[in-house]
Structure formats: structure tokens, C-alpha cells
């Protein structure tokens, strides 16, 4: 086979360093252009995906909500979040129904699970002072055991009307108080992690909420008025 070309270096024909540097620079520049193009094309789609997913989450944890408005905490008060993906800091979601009336808050918390970070979204009803639902946004818990934190419908449903004072606790022998959640058999650490994340998010956000009835209205031009 003569068409196999061996790259044998021939003394005296070594390329100069200028040529080496130039090759790398040109390759890197071309690569940069390609990447910038790919980023520009995919970024809006990726962000739309994230937003759609987040909204679907908010609608599950805030019963009756069909629209979302996003807030963030700045200078001691709630302000509209310009950046919806949460990158600018912790965000708070307000859910509104079709008649634009307020249905509840939703907040995102994050913390260490058994395997990796768990990100939890949960809804909160300020008039009853209760958690109204829980939705796992991100989890790499063990399949078959830890993943019951989002696959076990009964366990997820136990967050549907959960008192937050005293803080939510995980119990092993059957819940009988309004602030208790059962531990999942074989996934105690995962269940405790979820509850801890929710408690921490509550501790951060609940003191900042406006009094019930004084929630900001869903503005016509708010970022989330169409699902």
C-alpha cells in the first residue's frame, strides 16, 4: 500500500516556529467563529426550553396558576428579574391564574443530595402559610432508590399541603403532624436533602414576602403573561 503517507520529519525541512504558531492561531480563530455561530443559533432555543420547563414546574407546584412573573431580591425589596434564567441570583416566582389573580409563590432551592446537587422548586401559599407542592428540577439520585423523590407520586403529593412552622421534618414511623414527611425506604438521605433544601429556601424567602393580599399584580407587559 503506497498511499499510506508517513509523516516522517526530514532534517532541514523543519517548519519554523512562525508557521507552527500561525497554524494554531488560524485553527483557533476558525474554531472561535464556528463556536460563536453555533452559540448564537442555539442560545434562544436553549433559553426557551429552560423557561418552558420552569413554567411547567411553577404551574405544578402552585395550584391554579397559568401565568408566571419572576422577581428577584435587590436593595431590600422585590424587583422584576430582568434575567429569567436565575443566573443573576436567587429568584422568586409568582403564579397567577387566567383572571390575573394571585395564586401563590414558587421558589427554587439547591443543595447536596446523596449523589449530586438536587434543585427543588416548591410552591407556597401565603394565606395558609403552607407549602403547596414540590417539583424536582435537577437530580442525579440513585435510580430505583433515591429517584423516588420525583418518581414516587405519593411522596411528591405529601408536599401538597405541608405546614412550614415548625420547619418540615422527615420521620420514619408514619407522619402524623402537618409539618412531617415520611422518609423514603432506602433513600433516607435523599428525602432529608429535599426537605432541608425546602426549609432553607423558606428561611431565605418567607421573611421577604409581602403580607397576604398585597402581592404585586400581574402586569400586562410582564415577562410571563403567555404560557
Amino acid at each position: 500500500m503506497t498511499d499510506v503517507e508517513l509523516t516522517v520529519s526530514v532534517p532541514g525541512r523543519e517548519p519554523g516556529s512562525i508557521r507552527l504558531v500561525a497554524t494554531l492561531v488560524v485553527t483557533a480563530m476558525l474554531s472561535g467563529i464556528v463556536l460563536a455561530g453555533a452559540f448564537q443559533v442555539t442560545k434562544p432555543v436553549i433559553e426557551a426550553n429552560r423557561m418552558r420547563e420552569l413554567r411547567a414546574g411553577v404551574f405544578t407546584v402552585v395550584p391554579g396558576a397559568t401565568r408566571v412573573r419572576t422577581f428577584t431580591w435587590r436593595d431590600g425589596r422585590l424587583v422584576d428579574a430582568e434575567d429569567d434564567d436565575g443566573a443573576s441570583g436567587p429568584v422568586l416566582y409568582a403564579g397567577y391564574d387566567d383572571d390575573s389573580s394571585f395564586r401563590g409563590w414558587a421558589m427554587v432551592g439547591e443543595g447536596a443530595g446523596f449523589q449530586d446537587t438536587i434543585r427543588v422548586l416548591h410552591g407556597f401559599d401565603p394565606t395558609q402559610w403552607r407549602v403547596t407542592g414540590m417539583h424536582i428540577l435537577l437530580s442525579r439520585e440513585t435510580p430505583g432508590l433515591g429517584d423516588k423523590i420525583f418518581k414516587d407520586a405519593d411522596w411528591v403529593a405529601s408536599f401538597d399541603a405541608l405546614a412550614v412552622e415548625p420547619p418540615i421534618t422527615v420521620v420514619r414511623d408514619g407522619r402524623d403532624e402537618a409539618h412531617e414527611v415520611d422518609a423514603i425506604t432506602g433513600a433516607t438521605i435523599s428525602s432529608q436533602a429535599v426537605v432541608k433544601i425546602i426549609n432553607e429556601a423558606n428561611a431565605a424567602w418567607l421573611p421577604r414576602l409581602p403580607p397576604p393580599g398585597a402581592e404585586p399584580a400581574l402586569e400586562r407587559d410582564a415577562s410571563g403573561d403567555t404560557p
Binding site: 474554531s31 442555539t42 432555543v45
Partner: peptide, 21 residues
Amino acid sequence: STYIIIIATFVTVADFTLEAV
């Protein structure tokens, strides 16, 4: 180094595309 730059470019494009699609 050149191969790695080429490969990494394709990988990043694949990464973006999968995340979008």
C-alpha cells in the same frame, strides 16, 4: 494541539445542539 482544537469545536457544537434539540 490542532487535532484537539478541531475535535473540541465539534464537541461544543454537538453540546449546544443537543441541549437545544
